[in-house]
Design a protein around this nucleic acid. Structure first.
Lengths: 131, 131
DNA sequence: GATAGGGCTTCCAGTTACTGGAAGGTCAAG
DNA sequence: CTTGACCTTCCAGTAACTGGAAGCCCTATC
């Protein structure tokens, strides 16, 4: 199947698939006689795998690692577990940051009368380094 | 005060302050006779403002906007409120995504026995496009 | 007064993960 | 046979820094 179809099936833009290939994350597919990329079901499977990992916050570097764990028949599931657990810790940190940002902003918005008066609690809050 | 001190007081690395200046987000400070940047209290205030806004997820473009709203004595607080409210909506979307990512990963980790067996639910989950 | 260390300057390059566009070949439909 | 939608490569640009080189400047110590 050509790259357009692989894009549809994996959910990744064709441009991104080519980029992943160049970055040695995605597989190098077979080529047709005229040079079109020709993806197998297995290739698409891997593309979907990468897409999902990316959506779950794994960097391309980490995806490379996951792909090699995935395609290596001798890997232990413990290696994968460690990577995933680190990722969860990271997500927790991000969640904490975002929640704190949200708290500050919504407090500030609540206090802002939103009219023409020159006084704005949001700007004041940011200026005072509100957490 | 020189850039090192401004960096300490604003929490931004000196390198980043220079970058912000070049990007017309941070103020252009005065210069000493030998060409060192010389920041006023007010400059540092603005740097801290920008730093906080960045930490709250505002892009440099948005920071530029906030700074001009901040320094413009004629701005209405409504303009600021609108920007902040959009930011909250965006944060909510990110929170939702992260929570979903976390759910998937922790389910997969829980199911992973983490030993040498070649079977790993995490990789399987990613391959199946777990949400 | 020489020297060592830090801090400051500019500029150039690299990073991550794409995205857009140009120039050109290919393919299927009408 | 032409049109339009594909595909190819390559080159450039994006955001928001970060690192490094080359070269002043300033202070402290021997």
């Amino acid at each position: 199947m050509n790259i357009g179809e692989a894009a549809t099936q994996s959910g990744l833009p064709a441009k991104t698939i080519r980029y992943y290939e160049e970055a040695h994350v995605a597989p190098e597919p077979a080529r047709t006689e005229v040079g079109y990329r020709d993806y197998s079901e297995n290739d698409v499977h891997l593309l979907r795998f990468i897409h999902t990992a990316r959506r779950h916050g794994f960097s391309l570097e980490e995806c490379r690692e996951l792909v090699s764990l995935y395609t290596d028949p001798d890997r232990s599931s413990r290696d994968v577990k460690v990577v995933a657990e680190q990722k969860i810790t990271e997500i927790d940190r991000k969640l904490k940051d975002l929640r704190s940002m949200r708290r500050t902003l919504s407090t500030l918005v609540k206090e802002c009368h939103g009219d023409q008066r020159p006084d704005c609690p949001i700007l004041k809050g940011l200026a005072q380094g509100a957490k």
